[in-house]
Design a protein around this nucleic acid. Sequence first.
DNA 1: ATGATAATGATATTGCATTATCAATTAGGA
DNA 2: TCCTAATTGATAATGCAATATCATTATCAT
Lengths: 123, 123
Amino acid sequence: MPRKTQQRNAVQRVLADANRPLSAQEVFEAAQDFATGLGIATVYRNLKMMVREKRLVLVSLAGEPNRYELAGKAHHHHFHCRDCNRVFEVPECTSDLRRMTPDGFLLDSHDLVLYGKCRECAG
Amino acid sequence: MPRKTQQRNAVQRVLADANRPLSAQEVFEAAQDFATGLGIATVYRNLKMMVREKRLVLVSLAGEPNRYELAGKAHHHHFHCRDCNRVFEVPECTSDLRRMTPDGFLLDSHDLVLYGKCRECAG
DNA sequence: ATGATAATGATATTGCATTATCAATTAGGA
DNA sequence: TCCTAATTGATAATGCAATATCATTATCAT
């Protein structure tokens, strides 16, 4: 039976407040404010647990450490800012991906990542 | 001055013959046929050199070791087979990605990966 | 309040792709 | 052919995210 802890709440809260996927390191830094003395191992443990419980989903991007976002969001994709290295959400792509799937291939899912500068970095 | 070696030729040939991006490991295995006793370090060295010379491009996919493909191809994306773990090329997506870019963000490039079963695995 | 045990923090360890090291080999111009 | 420097193979080392370990602390049902 899982227990309520300050650390777990802090991790959860940080992810709920950020409306973008965060890395363990980002969660670690932000969650310090709500759980002083927080350890990185605890962050990893709680992220893993919350993914297992399907309260978070893992966002895996090429060449990047894993990020995590709240589960249950509508289908969407991500924008990776090359300057600040933050990842943002973008709405679903509308194009018919089946059209680009080679004959005989079975399409399950897809991932689209946009790269560039976020609003702040473009500023 | 770079020299012509059996090993370098083997790496090059394997990548030219495969019409899909290959990992260092895949290159290593396939190139054995053309260079007996080939070492994995040599494969990595040559891949790195060929990327530096812009004869290959690096294909980085989430949670996967790097893959490499011949440079100079038309813009395209990739299909990652969940069964055999091979990656294939697919033609460019036609949708207007700028439409999904949030206001104020600057879009440089994008990557799209399709997931599913390739023809052989779907067979 | 108490006890059983879940959770934590510090840190060592793992896993894995990739790179560095180095002695031995080989390419290729003189 | 000879020489020199590029290349190679074997393997140790690196980098880094993520996990395991373990003694200590905190939760919460009783």
